[in-house]
């Protein structure tokens, strides 16, 4: 079966990394950045520190290209003219036709859709952007960054991919677009949505969750505390189930741990089990596994998540948060019910 080895492995790797939290180790420039320089009354020209060097935006940008999901969501919510945008992961993977993100007001035409897996520099050059937002561009590397910088100033992550929180990322995008105040409002709205849900669902505080992706015979479970998904959950008051989080061992992806289905008995005590899948077959294998299938949690507190929710949960941006909470509400309600005995 040599035919499958290289192309498939490479593509599978790329997809896997995309779907599921990378970035805990991706830290191209770890030095502490100098304070950001502001000049002029409207904030422009403005210099921002990127992982691969400083970039200066001379005047308030008009035409925006967005290469990460947070970039599209925040720029669009701030009313920027997005002329080029990455398409939704569902549409990339052929699961849906809609290239707009489910939590973003459909981008006004004309918009050029870009493949998030493969940054096409020439395609971006033809869009004549004033700024290229790439704070969450997961396939960006230094070489592409340099090429893009020749087209327009690139605003990417300050330290590494998925290292900044959703609010920090939103404020950074707001600053780059000259709409910092509006960006702060988006942050506040997101925080209010979290507080409102926590009020609505008492008992979330201290509740335990498991969130994982099913693969061949193993569930890849999120356990690291510094990972954006875990931080989002912790913002809701939830902690990863200690029985799994405290297992020794490493996961296929940084910040996770691989747990064989034989060990699925460990999942039983979680207040909720969120799972996501790379394919329907993996979902069937997981749900029909003799050990997993017999767990009580599978009948009462198991919540499968679709690809868009999983993608948003990978690095929850402030625009996605209210939508994300809505999609997780059922699962979170189960935590609340179990803990309050209602």
């Amino acid at each position: 079966m040599r035919l499958l080895r290289r192309p498939l492995t490479a593509a599978v790797g790329a997809f896997a990394a995309t779907l599921f939290l990378v970035g805990c180790t991706a830290s191209p420039a770890a030095e502490a950045p100098a304070p950001e320089v502001k000049a002029g009354q409207g904030g422009f020209p403005l210099t921002l520190h990127n992982a691969w060097g400083d970039v200066t935006i001379q005047k308030e940008p008009r035409r925006v290209v967005a290469l990460g999901y947070s970039d599209v969501a925040v720029a669009s919510a701030l009313g920027a003219e997005v002329v080029g945008s990455v398409q939704s992961f569902g549409s990339v993977s052929g699961l849906s036709q809609d290239r707009n993100l489910p939590y973003v007001t459909p981008l006004p035409e004309p918009v050029t859709w870009l493949n998030p897996m493969d940054i096409n520099v020439e395609q971006i050059a033809t869009l004549k952007p004033d700024v290229i937002l790439a704070t969450a561009a997961y396939s960006l590397n230094e070489q592409t960054y340099e090429l893009l910088n020749d087209i327009a100033p690139v605003v990417t992550y300050e330290k590494g991919l998925y290292q900044a929180s959703g609010p920090d990322e939103a404020r950074r995008i707001g600053r780059a677009l000259g709409k910092e105040t509006a960006a702060r409002e988006l942050v506040t709205k997101s925080e209010q949505a979290v507080s409102a849900l926590r009020e609505e669902l008492p008992g979330l505080d201290g509740g335990t969750y498991l969130y994982g992706q099913a693969r061949a015979g193993v569930a890849v479970m999120v356990v690291a505390k510094d990972n954006l998904t875990a931080k989002f959950m912790s913002g809701l008051g939830l902690v990863p189930l200690p029985a799994v989080a405290n297992l020794r061992g490493k996961g296929s992806v940084p910040g996770t741990i691989d747990v064989s289905y034989e060990q699925a008995g460990l999942f039983e005590d979680a207040d909720v089990l969120f799972m996501t899948y790379q394919s329907d077959q993996y979902r069937q294998q997981f749900e029909k596994d003799p050990v997993v299938g017999k767990l009580g949690i599978m009948k009462s507190r198991y919540v499968p998540l679709d690809i868009e929710v999983a993608t948003a949960l990978q690095a929850p941006n402030v625009v996605a948060v209210p939508w994300l909470l809505d999609r997780l509400r059922d699962g979170l309600g189960k935590v609340s019910a179990r803990r309050t005995g209602s």
Partner: peptide, 19 residues
């Protein structure tokens, strides 16, 4: 060209006795 094919074959292509 067709990522759905990749998804469909992913479990099969792993070369595993699990499941």
């Amino acid at each position: 060209l067709n990522p759905r094919v990749l998804d469909g074959m992913r479990a099969w292509a792993a070369g595993s006795l699990a499941g």
